[in-house]
Design a protein around this nucleic acid. Structure first.
Lengths: 322, 322
DNA sequence: ATAAAAAGTGGAAACGATTCAAACTAAGTA
DNA sequence: TACTTAGTTTGAATCGTTTCCACTTTTTAT
């Protein structure tokens, strides 16, 4: 592989000049520029990015730290994040934490060692202190502090819409279902919005927010089914939770949407084998992804952002469950 | 950030010695080692990976180049690839090509510039000449040449199993559905296996392999439905194709599995909102992913592999469509 | 006790780029 | 002509490691 020195030799100029040509920085006589370009061409020279990163003390690499790329919501998010990064000449490093705090911390160390330019994080840790000011960071759906800007959908408004749509679909007594065992999460605002709107409209409602729905799902849902037998609407905190509820409800002989209307949150169903098609509050995943990237890149350039939390509007998408 | 020089100063030794301590290479007196370790501790020193990559002329970064991480098969694959890489101390760079040949080439250039240690590629290009010997590479499902080792599921056997299972489920005249407009793909062996087994068993069959199912899907499937009205079984080349067929068939008043049994290929349905649950030939995604990584890392260490194509056995998973 | 071998350590060179002060050139001005 | 100014170019220093050769110290063998 030819280096900048080889180019300089062949063109009969100094390495500094070649550098200026490559980066379009500083003044270079047209004649010199042509000579250099010819040499570059002839040697098939491309700058060594690693050397550049080293000298510059930073790389054009952004890390995406999330629980699991396998989850459809995250994989869609990752798709758009990569796309936006690529447009800006950045690369994406993918880190699955499995939602394990210790692995998140391990990744943060690694990322620091590798001098990544920034991190988009979907984390379960109280990372407030772990990361702090070292690396520019954007968080999706988690609001830690002013250093870590948060991009999220308008969860509160989403909750309000969900309640209204359940009522519109005929539900007399809807329930909220779901929990995030995590203080910093913005997603519990979905519940707040739901409750807020129910109070405004004077609609009776229930809220089921047992902790830790991840282990012993069977019990989790059967408890819910037993406790609130008179409900006729469910707003689940995620599509995944909605789908699980529907499955368990079906087993218990409850028909959706005849007996119970169901609305989820996310809108991840873009494949032909998703059935039933959920009624859901659709997160603008693409816009969230691109916003997160753009904000992050601003941060890496030293700009300070004007807000701590950026909320992207959501829309309701009617499916087969209301 | 403290550098190796700071450590050397504090410990009262030379940088070379510190380097030897860090890398456990060469001989160092226990006493010296302790001094150095204490200094490292005190300064909170961590080696700069970028500088190391630069000096070593290679990084511990593997690129995953695929059409779209959004696709559930790829996102599952990516999950396991990342996991296996992490175990080995490597990082994953994610590149979505959108299946566009020019973008694939663009990424190859970029990867070369960034001196990645290797590439796992799922490409649509005739990359045989573009990459060649520069970067160690493993391909999933595509068999180009000896330089690019291929990891794939046992497509031929999968096709045979699919036919047998369709027959077992009662199909008298099954059809193969699907096409990959790409010469190097191993996936068309699914058809070969299907046909092979039909001939052995003396079962009448049909094969529908129109090119380019990506544009104008409606026409693609309606043509299929019209042309082969007497078939009562479908083996689709992917789960995605199977799901689309089922959707179109339903619209045409065909009941699955009553009128037509359907078997797909992939086994990507691990979420509660996938319905109907497809009968399918399950690819061992995890094993494929880990195998690909292990083979690739062997390559990066200069080993030559004993085979050009590694086929991982598949299994049949009964669902609701047979 | 001495020589030879082995173990341990120091420090400079190298990797490939960017940057910056200094030097040089060309053009304009008095 | 001499001086100023702006435009170009040079080349050494630098980033943080690893590596290798030379040198010193310790161990082993005779």
């Amino acid at each position: 592989m030819a280096s900048i020195k080889d180019v300089a030799n062949l063109a009969g100029v100094a390495v500094g000049t070649v550098s200026r040509v490559i980066n379009n920085a500083g003044a270079v006589k047209p004649a010199t520029r042509d000579k250099v370009k010819a040499a570059i061409e002839q040697l098939n020279y491309v700058p060594d990015e690693v050397a550049r990163n080293f000298k510059m003390q930073k790389s054009k690499m952004i890390a995406l730290l999330l629980p699991s790329i396998w989850h459809p919501f995250f994989s869609e998010l990752a798709y758009y994040i990569e796309d936006e990064l690529d447009r800006e000449g950045y690369k994406l490093m993918l880190c699955n934490s499995g939602g394990k705090p210790e692995k998140e911390l391990y990744y943060f160390d690694m990322l620091k060692q590798n001098k990544v330019a920034g991190v988009v994080g979907i984390t379960y840790n109280d990372i407030e202190n772990s990361v702090s000011t070292d690396i520019p960071m954007i968080s999706i759906d988690r609001h830690f502090n002013k250093k870590i800007t948060c991009v999220t959908s308008d969860n509160f408004e989403g909750g309000r819409i969900a309640l209204r749509e359940l009522v519109k679909a005929g539900a007399k007594k809807p329930a909220f279902l779901g929990n995030v065992p995590f203080v910093y999460s913005e997603t519990m605002l979905r519940k707040e919005g739901f409750v807020h709107e129910a109070k405004i409209l004077g609609v009776p409602y229930e809220v089921y927010e047992e902790p830790d729905p991840l282990r012993d799902e069977d019990k989790y849902y059967s408890t819910f089914l037993n406790r609130y037998q008179d409900i006729d609407g469910v707003f689940a905190i995620t599509d995944m939770a909605a789908a699980k509820y529907i499955e368990k409800a079906k087993e218990a002989g409850i028909r959706v949407p005849d007996d119970v209307k169901v609305i989820g949150y996310d809108g991840i169903q873009d494949h032909p084998f998703f059935h039933p098609l959920l009624s859901t509050i659709r997160q603008p995943v693409e816009e969230m992804a691109r916003t997160a990237v753009r904000l992050l890149l601003k941060k890496t350039e030293g700009e300070t952002l004007d807000r701590e939390v950026y909320q992207i509007p959501v829309t309701y998408r009617a499916g087969e469950t209301t």
